[in-house]
Amino acid sequence: MSKQRRKKLPIDSWGDESVDRGEKKNILLKAGETFTGVEVLLPLMVWRGMEDGPVLGITAAVHGDEINGTGAIRSLIQEPPFELKRGTLILVPVVNVLGFERHSRYTPDRRDLNRTFPGSKNGSLTGRLAHLIMKEVVGRCDYLVDLHTAAVRRTNFPNVRANMDDADCERLAEVFGAEVIVNNTGPEGSLRHEACQAGCPTIILEAGEALKVEPSVQGITQRGLIHIMSELDMIDVSDDLRPDTSPHQMIVQSSSWVRASNGGFLKFHVAPGDTVDKGQPLATNTGLLGGEIETIVSPCQGIVLGMTTMPAVSPGDPILHIALPDTRKQFRSLEKSVDGLEEDTLENQVRDHLATNITVVDHIELDEDEIEIKESDEA
């Protein structure tokens, strides 16, 4: 459960800047300095409705190269498809401005910002940025949605990660409407974990690739954010705006990475969002001249949560991330629902778009004596 919160900072006062009801204001916070002593500023927008209500923070690019969320937030800033009636939005397109400037996941002092929260006012460069975010953003929010992508050379099928034992996190995660919710508290030092510890219920979305703004991922993201704002009674949703919801939702407690046993070049047989059965071929590993080295099969039933977009692999490289249903019945229900998706649904669009990042060839069938299932571990 979220811990008891300290007193929140006021939403109408940001240093020398004030934000009135019904106003949108751009705020610049000092996030650090370059090696030449020039200030680095963190831009954000504060958007207040005319009526009191909850404060929702939406952040992106805690890892500086994960910019799908940046695109989604910029769309809300530039062309909002709704009128904010109640409460306040704090929109932070790029949290890790220091890494973003360098197209890097990390900060210039080679630290992972998303393992440094809550940070320290007098700590490292990264620690000071984490402290700023905790104080100025998390310190004003009632709820937070943090937008992520896969790491470089990987892609993620859209999934929400949340502590489902926290009633407020559960509420946000379910209403967002992603097909898969991964139930965990997140690693210590991550923005999600530390914001929840500070009493601000927080969920994250993992979707798409680093260094890209992908249209279908933007659609999934915006739909989920509208769901959340509607649930919190911040916006009035008309029939024209009301987004469709996912036809199914699966909460998983665990996931598993599948790794290559040998070096080689992969031909994939599945794509992000596909359901897979135990023993099903996932990829064929070949030499550069086409000789087959191994067929990699699934060690379990589940849904492909993420995968590498780099077909050249070394022994031990992670190639697919599979979310594991609790029961066979849950898996079969998911499989049936995925197979029955209409062609024009947003869920099918994102599957098609993510599959264009890799080459998927037809499924192959193996005899039982050809199947060797290897145990896998976390990437």
Rank of each mutant, 00 (worst) to 15 (best):
R5C: 06
R6N: 04
K8R: 15
L9M: 12
P10H: 13
D12N: 10
D20S: 10
E23S: 05
I27Y: 05
L28T: 06
L29P: 07
K30M: 04
A31W: 00
G32Q: 10
F35H: 01
G37E: 07
V38M: 05
V38C: 03
L41Y: 07
L42C: 05
L44P: 04
W47M: 04
R48Q: 01
M50H: 02
M50F: 05
E51N: 13
G53I: 09
P54D: 02
P54A: 12
T59G: 03
A60I: 04
D65R: 03
G69A: 11
G71H: 05
S75W: 08
P80Q: 10
P80E: 07
P80Y: 03
P81W: 04
E83K: 09
E83Q: 03
L84S: 02
R86V: 03
R86P: 00
G87C: 01
T88C: 00
I90L: 11
L98W: 03
S104A: 01
Y106N: 06
Y106Q: 10
Y106V: 06
D109T: 06
D112P: 05
N122E: 15
G123R: 07
G123T: 13
S124F: 07
Y143G: 13
H148C: 10
H148E: 10
V152G: 08
R154K: 15
N163G: 12
D165A: 14
R171W: 02
L172Y: 13
A178D: 05
A178N: 13
E179I: 09
G186I: 07
E188R: 07
G189D: 02
G189A: 14
E194H: 06
A195R: 06
T202A: 09
L205C: 04
E206F: 12
E206K: 15
G208T: 11
G208H: 09
E209P: 15
A210N: 11
K212M: 11
P215H: 07
V217H: 14
I220W: 02
I226E: 08
H227S: 15
H227D: 10
I228F: 04
M229P: 04
L232A: 08
V237D: 02
D240H: 07
S246T: 06
H248Y: 12
M250C: 02
I251G: 01
I251D: 07
I251S: 00
S254C: 01
S254R: 07
S256Y: 01
V258N: 00
R259E: 02
A260S: 06
G264N: 09
G264H: 13
F265M: 15
P272T: 09
V276L: 06
D277Q: 13
T286F: 05
L288S: 15
E294G: 06
I296G: 09
C300L: 01
Q301E: 11
L305K: 15
D317S: 14
D317R: 00
D317Y: 02
L320M: 10
H321M: 01
H321C: 02
A323F: 01
Q330W: 05
L334W: 02
D339N: 13
E343I: 13
T345A: 01
T345G: 07
E347W: 15
E347R: 01
E347L: 14
V350K: 12
H353M: 12
A355P: 14
V360I: 13
V361D: 10
D362R: 13
I364T: 13
D367Y: 10
E368L: 11
I371K: 08
E372Y: 08
K374R: 15
D377P: 00
E378T: 09
A379H: 11
A379Q: 11
